[in-house]
Simulated scan of single mutants.
Amino acid sequence: MATHIKAVGTTQAKKPLEVMDIARRDLQPDDVQFQILYCGICHSDLHQVNDDFGLGHFPMVPGHEFVGRVTAVGSEVTSFKVGDLAAVGCIVDSCGHCHACRHDLEQFCEGEGGTTLSFNSPDKYMDSMTYGGFSQSYVCKEKYTLHMPDSLDLASAAPLLCAGITVYSPLKHWGAGAGKTVGIVGIGGLGHVAIKIAKAMGAHVVVFTTSATKVVDAKRLGAHEAVLSTNPEQMKAFASKVDIIIDTVSAGHEINAYLNLLAIDGSLVLVGLPSEPLEVGAFNVVQGRRSFSGSNIGGIAETQEMLNFCAEHDIVADIELISADQINEAFERLENNDVCYRFVIDMSTLG
């Protein structure tokens, strides 16, 4: 059995999104059902609907950073009740017993089928792929449903479910904090949240951007210093001085220019997803015992930790709130980098 609801999705790659009907599974004993209030638009959504990575299955309903209010719970659910706030990010299921899952790293699940994502993954309960948060409601296992702190503005907090955890996880893993200099490459949906989180962790935050206007905005967002990366003299001033660099850029760029900014034992962590390989010069990592690493979102426990941290420090994304009928326009603007810094859909407008 299933419940049919309205959603916004597409039937083929690079085709405009439209209102459609989709099916949600009926409540299982360990399920939480909630009405979706707000859903962020991530660059990954754009990649998926364009099938840029060749992994798209259609019809597709994007959306993997959304918050709502619980409307029903299964008979075995103990941590949610009707009326509570709930949220879902990228992960909605995993095998639960592999090495990664046992260590709260569900994003790296090694079991059969791997991690089930909130959209465009094989659905274990329905004869279809999972459908995401561009929709009226969602059903998720309690274990993978997050508690959204009620102190945060819900619309502005929705992007934390992807952008927040994507930068929080490497900042925590590589030890950002007092006495460390953290560089943020790129000020977009990920980068602007990384500035806020790194500063709240106590680090000295330096932003590197190709945009002169964003040099100014970086200070508003909380950066201690901002560097125009196209200026050789400004870049040279930070050579061998940065402990951790979070690289949020999803386009091709000269990675060696940033590797050379790392201090001894420094790490550059890639969280953006360039479609083409990045060429790394051997001497740029050998010199100073530098590391070039990557990070991919975070597990469920760490995502909840991130939400609690952001509530404690009053951290949310800078957003532009849109209605459901503006989604295609938002995707076009996102493709042209015309957003400061995240679109969020008011799902109540999907009537």
Rank of each mutant, 00 (worst) to 15 (best):
F208E: 06
V216E: 14
V316R: 09
V207G: 10
P232D: 08
A324R: 04
V249K: 08
G281N: 06
E225C: 06
A317T: 02
N308D: 15
M235W: 10
E302Y: 01
V215E: 10
V286C: 09
K199R: 14
P274S: 08
L261K: 15
F283I: 05
E305S: 07
E225G: 03
I197Q: 15
S323Y: 09
Q234F: 11
I187Y: 00
F238Q: 11
A226L: 10
E276Y: 02
K199H: 06
E320T: 12
H313D: 10
V205S: 06
L270K: 09
Q287P: 02
H253R: 07
F238C: 12
Q287N: 00
L261F: 11
L268H: 06
T210L: 04
F238Y: 15
V227E: 03
I297T: 11
F292W: 02
V285D: 10
A311C: 09
I244S: 08
G186D: 14
F238G: 05
I187R: 00
I255D: 03
V193Q: 08
A301V: 05
G294V: 07
A317Y: 01
K241G: 14
K241F: 10
M235F: 07
K199M: 03
I322N: 01
T303H: 05
V207T: 15
G202H: 10
V249L: 01
G298V: 09
A198F: 04
N260R: 11
A263F: 10
G298Y: 08
V271A: 06
A212K: 09
E312D: 07
I255V: 09
H192S: 15
S211W: 13
N284C: 06
N296V: 05
A317W: 02
G189E: 12
P232G: 11
A212P: 05
G202Y: 13
